[in-house]
């Protein structure tokens, strides 16, 4: 079961799944932000919305509801602002500048990385924070600290206790310092989905175990 919403896209009505709506809204927001300082801003965004409405109509045929797959399909056809942003439109330079500042502000956050951990994921979290490709260098540094003065282990334990674990996809993006933009959303959703399906799989196993117990 999925909640649906009714929207007006480019003057056409659509019924859309909630997750598909969120994805579409984020995409359109990125488009609006990208063109907000360009001349003809409203026309560009209105035209793009109208075109997306057409593409949805073509894709849907007789189906009544826009799904996440439809939204992804149409976004792939339209492209991300990064794809067509290279078409310089007027004051492109100062805009990209402010974009960088924004990225810097929201920047990276220090997390423990549970996906690539030996003990607590502290080292690989630090490596992600400083953009070090291989966390093994950070681990080596900790080992050196431990051997040379015994300072490494208490420091590690403190960091382990203090740093939060990167639990969600957006945490993981923040850890790597990637802004949550359209080009990343696909990946975020995929990561979330694989996480969810893992969880569901575990749940299924548990239920199966319960069930077979009851049978006996």
């Amino acid at each position: 079961m999925n909640k649906v919403l009714n929207i007006n896209l480019g003057g056409m009505p659509f019924t859309i799944d909630e997750d598909a709506y969120d994805h579409l809204r984020t995409y359109l927001k990125t488009i609006h932000k990208h063109f907000s300082s360009s001349e003809g801003y409203e026309e560009i965004t209105a035209d793009i919305e109208a075109r997306m409405a057409e593409l949805f109509q073509e894709k849907l045929g007789n189906r009544p509801i826009v799904t996440l797959a439809d939204v992804k399909h149409v976004i792939a056809i339209m492209g991300t602002p990064e794809d067509f942003g290279a078409e310089s439109i007027g004051e492109d330079a100062p805009k990209s500048d402010s974009g960088k500042r924004w990225e810097f502000k929201t920047g990276k956050r220090l997390f423990r990385n549970p996906d690539d951990s030996v003990v607590g994921g502290v080292c690989s979290g630090i490596a992600a924070y400083f953009g070090i490709q291989d966390p093994v260098w950070v681990r080596l540094a900790f080992i050196l600290l431990t051997v040379s003065g015994g300072f490494g282990i208490p420091l590690y334990l403190i960091l382990w206790a203090v740093l939060p674990e990167a639990k969600t996809a957006s945490d993981r993006l923040a850890m790597r310092g990637e802004p949550a933009n359209v080009s990343n959303i696909g990946r975020i959703i995929e990561e979330e989905l694989s996480y969810m399906s893992k969880k569901m799989g575990e749940l299924g196993e548990e239920l199966k175990a319960e069930f077979s117990k009851k049978k006996k």
Binding site: S38, G40, E43, I44, D83, E87, G90
Partner: peptide, 28 residues
Amino acid sequence: VQGTLYPLLARLKSAGLLDYTWKESDAG
């Protein structure tokens, strides 16, 4: 990607090289 077209049209329009008119359509 199709999105490439729209900023270009807007730029050509604001440079006074293009103009547009609205027309009714049967499909929307």
